[in-house]
């Protein structure tokens, strides 16, 4: 019983940490984008705009919640929650430092990949339930895109798994004790780039954000959402993105490894630093590319990324076999 209470407490802390992180990551992104565009960014609310995310959240909470008359009420109202749950659930398997995580499953990577692709259900529900043509078109695109990009995403994520010989996150980090996987000649770099591209696509970020596509579809599947429901969708999206950044840091950048990482606090710092680095790369790409078209997106996935990641995975597997076993 005591054990259960402790677990619940840990989950509560993690959930709130995720929400706090998401709100402040939006500020980071806005500041970063502003610098790229020779602007200052949020500056008025609090010192250097530090209270801006809180103001945003308050604003969204106070907005009127509108349900379109033609919407399928059940599906429409349920969609944000269904969307949010997998996005937050994936944090459960992420270890922030040795033994500092909710559940270091022995199939951690598999769990992450499986659950994160569940977000499409909520997304499609939102697009369908809104009964809006823009939203419907966007939901169709989302299904297309996520089906196409999950495979390369999985293959790219499997490269470190093969190198480490384990699906457990902490074991993968431990296997990078000598050399981070991103530093492995050729395989590591190509794998990391493929992982980043697949992440961008799986998270629907620019240049693959065809389902949001505000210049064509206004806001895509969430065009009819307002107030707190909109905030929940936004929260889910950013949570998913941060989780993927964490995964990138764990799989390729050696997780919490770094000078002084024997002390858990410093390990966590290293880990957050690396994850934010991945996040900023994603943001950098976002603010410098134009969006590509839906047919081109599918072509990139099936004709380029899928064979490339599959080939890379095979090469990695051969190499590991030649080396005579996985591990550090």
């Amino acid at each position: 019983m005591e054990h259960l209470a402790l677990d619940a407490l840990a989950a509560f802390i993690l959930l709130n940490a995720v929400i706090g992180m998401v709100t402040y990551v939006t500020l980071l992104e806005r500041k970063f984008a502003a610098r790229m565009q020779s602007r200052i960014g949020p500056y008025r609310v609090g010192p250097h705009g530090l209270l801006q995310p809180i103001a945003d959240a308050l604003k969204l909470m106070m907005k009127e919640d509108i349900v379109p008359r033609a919407a399928d009420r059940w599906v429409y109202n349920l969609a944000p929650i269904v969307f949010l749950i997998p996005c937050v659930l994936i944090f459960a398997t992420i270890p922030f430092a040795p033994r500092l995580g909710l559940a270091d499953l022995n199939i951690g990577v598999l769990f992450f990949l499986a659950v994160s692709s569940l977000e499409i259900v909520g997304l499609f529900m939102g697009g369908w339930g809104s009964n809006n043509k823009y939203a419907l078109l966007s939901a169709m695109r989302a299904v297309n895109q996520i089906i196409s990009y999950d495979l390369p995403f999985v293959f790219a994520a499997l490269i470190p798994v093969v190198l480490a010989g384990s699906l457990q996150m902490s074991a993968i980090v431990a296997a990078q004790q000598g050399l981070w996987f991103v530093a492995y000649p050729v395989i590591g770099q190509l794998g990391f780039v493929a992982f980043l591209v697949a992440t961008l696509a799986a998270e629907n970020r620019v240049p693959f954000d065809i389902l949001e596509a505000e210049s064509e579809l206004v806001a895509g599947f969430r065009v009819e959402y307002s107030g707190m429901k909109f905030a929940i969708i936004q929260l889910g999206e950013y949570a998913h993105m941060i989780a993927s950044s964490f995964l990138g840091a764990l799989l390729f950048l050696g997780g919490w490894l770094g000078p002084g990482s024997d002390i858990p606090a410093i390990g966590v710092l290293w880990f957050l630093l690396k994850a934010m680095l991945v996040f900023l790369v994603v943001t950098w790409v976002r603010w410098s590319f134009v969006r590509i078209r839906v047919d081109q997106i599918l072509a990139v996935s099936w004709k380029l990324l899928l064979p490339a990641t599959l080939g890379l995975l095979l090469v990695t597997a051969f190499w590991v076999a030649l080396r005579g076993g996985a591990g550090a």
Partner: peptide
Amino acid sequence: DMGGALGGGAT
């Protein structure tokens, strides 16, 4: 128009 208000186009 091509890159979106929240993407490279805005830059």
